[in-house]
Computed example of a mutant assay.
Amino acid sequence: MARGSSAGAVVAALTAAALAVVGYFTYQASAAQDRAEAGASDSGGSGELTEREKEEKERETNLPAFSGAGKRVVYDLDRNRVWLMNPDQEVKRTFRVAPSSVDPEPGTYKVESRAPHVTGSDGVPVENVVRFATSQGTTIGFSAALDGSLPDADQVRQTGGIRERRADGEAMWLFATIGTKVVVVR
């Protein structure tokens, strides 16, 4: 009986050691994911942004001048970036988008229609569609592909879908109801 107890103790110790190793690697993987989501820099490796990277990020995310006031969506055609602006001039959210092949003209528009799920003008199933303009006979709006893709604009076919990541599309959907102002700038 003593021999069986000692073999059982060895198996238990090995099992505990194996679980500890698996737990350690799981913790490391989780910590790496947390660092990546926090915006770790590829260039420095330390996760810290250099001063130049901070300045570039700030320039990229600064709200364009002369983009209106009040509650609105601001879409910068040159930077492929959107800002959701609260009535008090506070940025609720900003994010990059993949442009459509047909751009709206710079100006002020209003959200004209919305659809929870449709097939985009490029044939891709999309959600959270927020339409605000028509240009060159093509309806222009923000949407998120169900497969999460952010395609390059198709220069052969006229498409009006300005693609967002799904989380950004959800934020746009909740923010930009019918009649919400959309300011397009260059």
Results as ranks from 00 to 15, higher is better:
Val118His: 00
Pro106Leu: 07
Asn80Lys: 08
Glu51Tyr: 03
Gly47Thr: 08
Lys54Thr: 12
Ser41Ala: 13
Asp78Gln: 12
Phe25Met: 10
Ala153Asp: 13
Tyr75Cys: 15
Phe95Leu: 04
Ser100Trp: 02
Lys110Ser: 12
Val82Ala: 14
Ile178Lys: 14
Val22Asp: 09
Ala31Val: 11
Val82Asn: 10
Glu112Asn: 10
Leu77Gln: 06
Arg93Phe: 09
Ala171Ser: 03
Val97Cys: 15
Thr119Trp: 00
Pro104Tyr: 05
Leu174Val: 07
Gln158Ala: 15
Ala98Phe: 06
Gly141Trp: 02
Phe175Lys: 02
Val129Ala: 02
Asp147Thr: 14
Ser143Val: 13
Leu19Asp: 09
Gly47Asp: 07
Gly47Lys: 10
Leu146Lys: 10
Leu146Met: 12
Asp154His: 00
Glu105Ile: 05
Val91Leu: 03
Thr138Gly: 10
Ala144Glu: 09
Met85Pro: 04
Val111Ile: 08
Leu150Phe: 06
Ser149Asp: 13
Val102Arg: 04
Asp76Ile: 10
Ser46Thr: 15
Thr119Glu: 00
Asp76Arg: 04
Pro116Gln: 06
Ile140Gly: 01
Glu56Gly: 02
Gly141Gln: 00
Glu164Gly: 04
Pro125Asn: 07
Glu53Trp: 02
Val124Lys: 04
Asp88Thr: 01
Val21Arg: 11
Gly4His: 14
Trp83His: 04
Ser100Lys: 00
Ala20Ile: 07
Ala9Gln: 10
Asp34Thr: 09
Ser67Phe: 09
Arg79Asn: 05
Val129Met: 00
Glu51Arg: 15
Glu164Asp: 11
Asp34Pro: 08
Thr139Gln: 12
Val124Gln: 13
Gly169Cys: 09
Arg93Trp: 07
Glu58Tyr: 06
Pro151Trp: 01
Val97Leu: 06
Ser149Met: 08
Leu150Asp: 06
Lys92Cys: 01
Leu146Cys: 10
Gly70Phe: 10
Arg163Ala: 08
Ala145Met: 01
Thr159Gly: 05
Phe142Tyr: 08
Val82Arg: 03
Leu49Gln: 06
Asp147Phe: 11
Pro87Met: 01
Val22Pro: 06
Phe95Glu: 02
Val91Pro: 01
Ala115Thr: 05
Gly47Val: 12
Phe66Thr: 13
Glu56Thr: 01
Asp88Phe: 12
Arg52Phe: 14
Arg163Phe: 14
Arg81Asp: 02
Arg3Gln: 05
Ser43Gln: 11
Val126Leu: 02
Phe66Lys: 13
Gln136Glu: 15
Ala40Cys: 05
Phe175Val: 07
Ser30Asp: 11
Pro151Asn: 07
Thr61Asn: 08
Glu55Trp: 13
Ile162Pro: 01
Gly148Cys: 10
Tyr24Phe: 08
Glu37Asn: 10
Gly169Pro: 07
Arg72Asn: 08
Ala144Asp: 10
Val129Glu: 04
Asp76Gln: 05
Gln28Tyr: 05
Tyr27Asp: 10
Pro151Ile: 01
His117Gln: 15
Gln155Val: 13
